[in-house]
Write a protein that binds this DNA or RNA. Structure first.
Lengths: 228, 228
DNA sequence: GCAAAAGTGTTAATTATACACCCATGT
DNA sequence: ACATGGGTGTATAATTAACACTTTTGC
């Protein structure tokens, strides 16, 4: 491969993915057990080295596809982590990503046993290898900011869902309870959802209408961030 | 150096810095002319390859120090850019940073002619090499978000400044005019500044009070981002 | 009928926006 | 005294937040 830059020492480059999903009224993250030394067997994010012919985004998509069976999913960079001794096995520079997937579509390609991947509530994240706890922390903060200025849900909830489910998702994002009435009004004002005629009667006798995200979101309202 | 990971192809890793400063009522960015092929002589961000014994943050600080003479400055990651052919000279993965410096303290260590570094208003950014325009764009967006939720100014303005100057800085961030009266009230409500007894009489006969950032910002108010 | 969750309405507090007005001072 | 930018005040609209109220339906 062409290289006009001589005498530059190349580095090992990897990606680590914080994969979020939503299930049973809880926001969860997919954690696995590390296959390689050092740290073999410990809890870890899913990651891998970048290949010569792919971008970081390509690598992250490849890895998420392997472990979830899903492609074309929502994914964003968190940050790149490069402390000298973050990985005791070698000097590795790793870019963190966070991904949002629908657990109802989760269908891993790899044998689950191989990685022993599990969905863990974000409130119960164990100690992870290397600096992975820091990556998760930053990923969660980015997700919170996103959820603050845009209605996040399409990537995490099933096709149809109740407002209670959406609210409970938001309560997971912000880790606090939200007023049901005010939440409804806020969501409706965003013009992003459409009500179906169908009701979910699991949670109550009256039944709660199902909603889904509009195909056409041209009238959807986003919050400005600018407040000053 | 220890390496437990065999058969992994290492990559060239670099940093590129979008250095912002504020001068004559304008937000500016420090651009240089590229010293190396490919693209030698073209407008470019200031950057360089990461060394074996430093993190990305270390490398960015080193590079900013060389070109501005300043250390301990405000700096944050923008994102990491890794498209396969972003740099025609080789496959280079580059992490973008943005830095905020005070132009009144700017004192480059390297001969300025060597890089031909210049302060260019953000409204007049020329075509840059590779994907540097994209890096600048994302850096500016990050800066806007920061300025939306926190009072940015300490890192860009001189020690003492008038509210008009601060407002003009904010007008540079958001590229729109802000109501003088409402801006004052907003700033005062944030509890971040203290008024000096001194006045600046350059702009008017009456004179405008100088302000500075409080040493103690324990009572300073930050805007929540959470709006839903 | 009543419990329980869904959904609506009312009010107060806060914040944002537009703009009128007063202030100090060099000429 | 008056023009000019600095600085303050006021009226209104929009948003947020707390909480009371009505609706539906299975038991």
């Amino acid at each position: 491969m062409l290289n006009l830059y001589k005498n530059i020492i190349p580095q090992l480059v990897a990606v680590d993915c914080a994969i979020f999903g939503y299930e049973n009224e809880e926001l969860k993250i997919l954690l696995s057990h590390r296959k390689l030394e050092p740290g073999k067997g410990n809890w870890s994010l899913i990651g891998g080295f970048i290949q010569e012919d792919e971008s970081l985004e390509d690598a992250a998509e490849r890895i998420v596809l392997q472990i979830t069976g899903l492609s074309n999913i929502f994914m964003e960079q968190v940050a790149t982590f490069s402390k000298l001794n973050r990985d005791p096995g070698a000097r590795v520079i790793s870019t963190g990503f966070y991904a949002l997937i629908r657990i109802d579509q989760y269908a891993p390609l790899l044998k689950v046993e191989e990685y022993d991947a599990r969905w863990i509530p974000v409130t119960q994240i164990p100690e992870l290898v290397f600096d992975h706890n820091e990556i998760v922390q930053k990923a969660f903060e980015k997700l919170q900011i996103l959820a603050s200025i845009d209605l996040v849900g399409k990537a995490l909830l099933p096709e149809k869902f109740t407002l209670k489910q959406l609210r409970s998702l938001y309560e997971s994002f912000f880790q606090r309870s939200l007023d049901p009435g005010n939440f409804r009004k806020k969501i409706h004002s965003l013009n992003a959802l459409e009500r179906l005629d169908e009701k979910n009667t699991e949670g109550s006798k009256k039944g709660a209408y199902y909603f889904r995200f509009k195909e056409d979101d041209s009238e959807r309202i986003f919050n400005r961030v600018i407040k000053i």
